[in-house]
């Protein structure tokens, strides 16, 4: 497994586009999650311009334990960049025909796929670790007081966030293996939420209970949106186990479909 990861990283680490996209992604991820207070200040000044005022200190964006879910959810929005990187990496293998040469040289088709999956695991892990540290540090800075009893409440949002990123990258990988062309697959990835949304809207009135089983929906449900709580609304502030189960099944299916497709294809 480690050898397969090394093979895929060898391909990527000399690829400029990889550094640009991943650099941009991790930079944005770190900056965006850490600069929430600045954002709130900007928001407050904007609202003041309209003659209203909000007290941003009343919004405990970075206070333990809110910070975990707040940042895990916000970070999830950026995973699309990694998805595009995954698409470029896999569709390149088709346009250069290197997937063919890799097999000729002695990888099995499954090994080729594992090499891509392990890279997805690594990227998900790095995202999780980065966001965890940003949350920890900002939490320590901004929390008015530290209470060990509930400080780590909600830390389970990080494994959920990890699964969220990995499931999404698995989806992107599958899309790339089926579509094989970079432009088209990126367009499809960007539009997949829209397509799912249209379907969901159409069945919402009849069978709303199946919506949670939709693939992208299930990925979104892993870390629910937390910010409504600052408008005094009830939110789901825990990771739902059924949601994890559904997302796990989809993650397995994405990668299994990739495997089936790769196995059947003439390369």
């Amino acid at each position: 497994m480690l050898q397969l990861l090394r093979i895929d990283l060898k391909k990527l680490t000399s690829y400029r586009t990889f550094w640009i996209i991943c650099g941009l992604y991790f930079f944005t991820l770190g900056m965006a999650t850490a600069s929430g207070m600045e954002f709130l200040k900007w928001l407050a000044s904007l609202i003041e311009g309209f003659g209203q005022s909000i007290n941003i200190d009343r919004i405990p964006l970075y206070h333990f334990p809110d910070v975990w879910q707040n940042l895990a959810w916000s970070s999830g929005l950026l995973k699309i960049m990694l998805g595009i990187m995954v698409l470029i990496s896999i569709t390149n293998e088709y346009s250069y025909r290197t997937v063919r040469q890799n097999i000729i040289d002695g990888l099995s088709r499954a090994e080729f796929l594992y090499s891509k999956i392990t890279t997805n695991l690594l990227l998900s892990l790095l995202s999780m670790v980065l966001v965890f540290f940003v949350s920890l540090v900002t939490g320590l800075i901004y929390s008015p007081s530290l209470n060990w009893h509930y400080m780590f409440n909600g830390i389970e949002f990080f494994p959920a966030y990890f699964l969220e990123v990995f499931a999404f990258l698995s989806f992107a990988l599958m899309l790339g293996i089926f579509v094989q062309r970079s432009g088209l697959s990126i367009v499809l990835l960007l539009n997949s939420y829209l397509i799912e949304l249209i379907i969901k809207k159409n069945i919402d009135d009849y069978v709303p209970q199946v919506i949670q089983f939709f693939p992208l929906e299930s990925i979104m449900n892993l870390v629910p949106m937390p910010f409504a709580r600052y408008a005094f609304q009830e939110i789901q502030d825990y990771v739902s186990l059924p949601a994890v189960g559904i997302a796990l099944v989809w993650t397995f299916l994405f990668n299994y479909f990739s495997y089936l497709r790769l196995k059947k294809a003439d390369l």
Binding site: Q3, R6, I7, K10, K11, S14, Y15, R16, Y96, R97, T98, R100, Q101, N102, I104, D105, G106, L107
Partner: peptide, 26 residues
């Protein structure tokens, strides 16, 4: 084996391409 056309990663040097092949062929 070389089938039809040479196939390599265009953005890698010849040396790096061979290093990659060496990893695959162990």
């Amino acid at each position: 084996a070389v089938l039809e056309h040479p196939i390599f990663y265009p953005y890698l040097s010849g040396q790096k391409n061979l290093e990659l092949n060496a990893m695959i062929k162990q």
